[in-house]
Design a protein around this nucleic acid. Structure first.
Lengths: 150, 150
DNA sequence: CTATATAAAAGAATAATATTCCACTTATTG
DNA sequence: CAATAAGTGGAATATTATTCTTTTATATAG
């Protein structure tokens, strides 16, 4: 499962555009169509390639406000964690949740239409019994990519 | 540019799998192939659909450590902002950067192999003259989706 | 060094899918 | 109601993915 230079090039290309044809990829990677195709299959089978997704414009869907929510809790037990998990998985608008090391216990990304919409999301969250919640609203998206450096 | 129920269903489907065939999508949305295809084209033209990307597994690419970096600055001027922008755009491993309202000025997501790798990223960043930098390492990814609620 | 085995490659053949085209239906407007 | 526009489904065509076969390269034993 070692990735050579060609695998990496292939990954770089498909990361930024999942709809490029195998023929195009093959040409750019100096491979035949079939060799290129086999490499892609292999990368999928190995799990290097996880998923092909379509990215939408949040603003066009009336989700113009992105908010980062820092959470601290005083409930460090399995039951609470389970409940918290349940809540965040089921609240639409919550896109990402991370458990962190350090001061902040959890970091969460959510998209909402406006402040009023945020408030209703906030109300849903505190049902999970949080200790300290701090919201920071996104003023500007300076960089946003899903492309890992390969 | 109003989205009806069928558009929304279509968007939900392609958000989680960009490789579904038009025929499959058409069936699931109770449309003919050509009607379905035309809707997709329209959504692309309108900019609702932004991009189709391939998501890779960071761990398989030796990028097993995700870090969230909070930044405060005392340089609130255009020159500094421009320089900061330049730096973050060009450092690979930095995937996302947001300018926030509130205590924290900027929030940044980066992927690295390990602590040593993080240190070298940190060194590159402070070249941009930052006031206060706090790193929080991701212990667990509890939720991670690019699918907006439509 | 050659013979042979193994793996990988290219290119042709086929299957699947996307895209276009056209005849027809359904809504809209004066 | 007629006229027009907009949209639809299904067949025709073009493009692309996938499989298959033949060839080429690579490694290894003798």
């Amino acid at each position: 499962m070692e990735l050579d230079k060609t695998d990496r090039k292939l990954l770089r290309l498909i990361q930024s555009d999942a709809s490029t044809s195998v023929a195009d990829l093959a040409e750019q990677c100096a491979l035949s169509k079939s060799a290129c195709w086999r490499r892609i299959q292999k990368l999928e089978a190995e799990g290097v390639i996880r998923q092909r997704v379509t990215l939408l414009d949040p603003a066009k869907l009336n989700l113009g406000l992105t908010v980062w929510i820092s959470i601290r809790t005083n409930q460090h037990n399995a039951d609470w964690a389970k409940k918290f998990n349940q809540v965040v998985q089921n609240v639409p608008g919550v896109l990402e949740v991370y458990r962190l090391g350090g001061q902040i216990d959890y970091l969460m990304k959510a998209v909402v239409a406006d402040m009023h919409d945020y408030d209703s999301l906030y109300q849903q969250l505190i049902a999970a019994d949080l200790f300290d919640v701090t919201a920071s609203f996104v003023m500007e998206e300076i960089k946003f990519t899903s492309a890992l450096p390969v």
